[in-house]
Structure formats: structure tokens, C-alpha cells
Write a protein that binds this DNA or RNA. Structure first.
Length: 315
DNA sequence: TATTGAAGGACTA
DNA sequence: ATCATTAGTCCTTCAATA
């Protein structure tokens, strides 16, 4: 069996560890340049604040003190994440850290998993102060489904399991297709056009059609929803690339400014590489115009160079 | 004909 | 009218190369 531990509103929960007075209040955390909302507390979601909304659109609510906005403190969130992951790691055979706020756990084939999950959840809350939701099922994708129920129905108290065929059928019949892991905007539209609105509807399609419509990844999702593992469980996921990028505050065509940015970002990437003892095989640089102004002339360019001898120094 | 590489895109948190 | 993240993975397509 597989469990998924998913931190609730992670960035906001981290801020609440430092500022307990934010508990119960509508809080959002902003992106790097305070450009848009990247995390929302339950209360902020209830106010109808969408994910990714630009700062200026919530500015009025902030002035009226209906909503609290915080700048993001990524180094701290990273630290909290590492403490949570380490705490969990000590209690399971296998752990795959999937993102800053989620990890998959490999559990024995059979057993009574819910008491374990409830205890783990309580321990993370008590020792670190971050509330988590835990989903248990036979595949990663079904564990995601279970987490969806753990988060959306208070009755589950943060822990939901799909352990029987009846539970699986019921969970999938009620799950909107767009909530399925791996179904994004594009695939949602394609499925809707084929009359699919729930996860159960997807399984009712012939696999051939799913293969044609959604290709390799879609077929994997299909099998995973059936309860057959189609995604690898990877304890170590070697990093493939490091990145550094920013949206510039003002548009510029000034080559000197762009060069300065690129030098800065390159230095940042090199620091990351050194920190993790990695070597670069390829260097790519991209530049993009503001794609949110579609009427302006657009230009998107990526250049890539293979590096024969991995450079030891950014200069 | 099979493999490789670049470009582009979908998706995720 | 404003603003509009950042970092990452994997897959597909198509053309060039062996």
C-alpha cells in the first residue's frame, strides 16, 4: 500500500508556526516579488481568493483588513519541510519526497494503516506545528484521491483510506475528473468533449480511446485509478537541472541590463551546482516577452550549448 | 531503419 | 488600468545523422 502525506496550505502553515496569532484568519503568501498569491489559508479560500491572483486584485481587501498578505520566506519553508520529511523518514521503510510539501510512503501490503497515519499526523502537528492530510491506497494516484477526500471532508479528520473495491468505486464515482492527478486544463477539455466528468467516467472509456486521447501518461493514470501501479516509487530522484529565473519588474531591451541579469542568474545556478556537488553538461538561456500582453510583439528565445568540459567557475 | 537531439508543450506544486 | 511566480519533470514531434 502507498500513503501520501500532504501538508495543508503549506506556506501559510509555516507562517503560522512563527506567528500563531494568524491561526483562524484569512492569510495569503505572495510569490517572490510579491507579484501574486501562491498560498492561501482555508479562510482565504473561503473568501474566494483564487490561486495565482495578482496582488493588485486583492489590494483592496488588504487595505480593508479583510485579508492578510505575507511576503514569501522560502528558506524557512525549506527548513520546515526538511524537519517534517526527516520525522516521517524515521518511521517507514521507504519514502519518496515528491515536493516541498508532499511525500509518498511505501507501507506493507496489508495491515491497519489508519491508526499509524493518525498517530503520524498528530506527531507532525505536535512537534512541528504543521497540519497534514494523509491518503492511503494501493497506488500513488489513488493515494492522491484519498488525500482529496481527507482534505475536503472534515469527517475524515485528515486521514482517508481506499482499502476495498467498494471504497474505490465510490471515491471515483464522486470525484470530478479535473481533480485527478495528471489531468490538467488541456486533458480536462478533451475528456469533457467525450462526456467524461468523473474519474469513474474515465475508467468506463475503452483503454484504446484513452491511449489515443491522453497518450502514455493518460494510460498510466487510467491503470493507477484501476488500482494497478503504473508509476515508479523512487526513493532517490537525481536532479536533472537547476534553474534561476525572474520576471523583470519593467520590460527592457537594454542589453547591458539583460546581461547583468543573466550573469546574476548564472552565478545563482553555479552556487546551487557546487552546493550539491553537480556538474553542468549543458547551459541554456531563455528570454521571453510578456505573454500576458498578447497584442504586443512577442519574442521567445532559448539558446542551448553543450559544455564539453564542465566549468568549475561561472566566469 | 534506428537512434539522437532540439523544440515545444502538458503538467505539477 | 494596474498584474501576471518559479522550478522542475516527462512526453511528443520532427528532422538530422549514423
Amino acid at each position: 500500500m502507498i500513503a501520501l502525506v500532504d501538508c495543508n496550505n503549506f506556506f501559510v502553515s509555516c507562517e503560522r508556526v512563527l506567528h500563531p496569532e494568524l491561526e483562524g484568519k484569512p492569510v495569503v503568501v505572495l510569490s517572490n516579488n510579491d507579484g501574486c498569491v501562491v498560498a492561501r489559508s482555508q479562510e482565504a479560500k473561503a473568501l474566494g481568493i483564487p490561486m495565482g491572483i495578482p496582488y493588485f486584485k486583492v489590494a483592496r481587501k488588504l487595505r480593508e483588513e479583510v485579508l492578510i498578505a505575507l511576503s514569501n520566506n522560502h528558506a524557512f519553508y525549506h527548513d520546515v519541510s526538511q524537519r517534517i520529511m526527516a520525522l516521517i523518514h524515521d518511521q517507514v521503510e521507504q519514502q519518496e519526497v515528491y515536493s516541498i510539501d508532499e511525500c509518498f510512503l511505501r507501507l506493507p501490503r496489508s495491515g491497519d494503516f489508519k491508526p499509524f497515519a493518525r498517530t503520524l499526523r498528530a506527531e507532525i502537528l505536535q512537534k512541528i506545528g504543521v497540519p497534514v492530510s494523509i491518503g492511503i491506497a494501493s497506488t500513488k494516484t489513488l493515494a492522491k484521491v484519498a488525500v482529496y477526500y481527507a482534505k475536503h471532508y472534515a469527517g475524515y479528520q485528515g486521514v482517508a483510506a481506499i482499502e476495498t473495491e467498494e471504497q474505490r468505486a465510490k471515491a471515483l464515482a464522486k470525484l470530478p475528473i479535473e481533480e485527478v492527478w495528471g489531468i490538467g486544463r488541456r486533458r480536462w477539455a478533451q475528456l469533457k468533449a467525450n462526456g467524461v466528468t468523473t474519474a469513474a467516467d474515465l475508467l468506463a472509456l475503452p483503454i484504446g480511446l484513452v491511449q489515443r486521447l491522453l497518450s502514455v501518461t493518460g494510460s498510466r493514470t487510467y491503470r493507477e485509478l484501476e488500482g494497478v501501479e503504473a508509476l515508479p516509487f523512487a526513493e532517490v530522484t537525481p536532479r536533472q537541472s537547476v534553474f534561476s529565473s525572474r520576471s523583470l519588474e519593467v520590460e527592457t531591451a537594454d542589453m547591458a541590463k539583460l546581461e547583468a541579469c543573466i550573469t546574476l542568474f548564472l552565478g545563482h545556478c553555479c552556487r546551487k551546482l557546487r552546493h550539491e556537488n553537480l556538474y553542468a553538461q549543458e547551459l541554456s538561456i531563455y528570454l521571453s516577452t510578456n505573454r500576458f500582453h498578447p497584442k504586443d510583439p512577442q519574442h521567445h528565445e532559448l539558446i542551448a550549448r553543450h559544455l564539453n568540459t564542465p566549468p568549475a567557475d561561472p566566469r
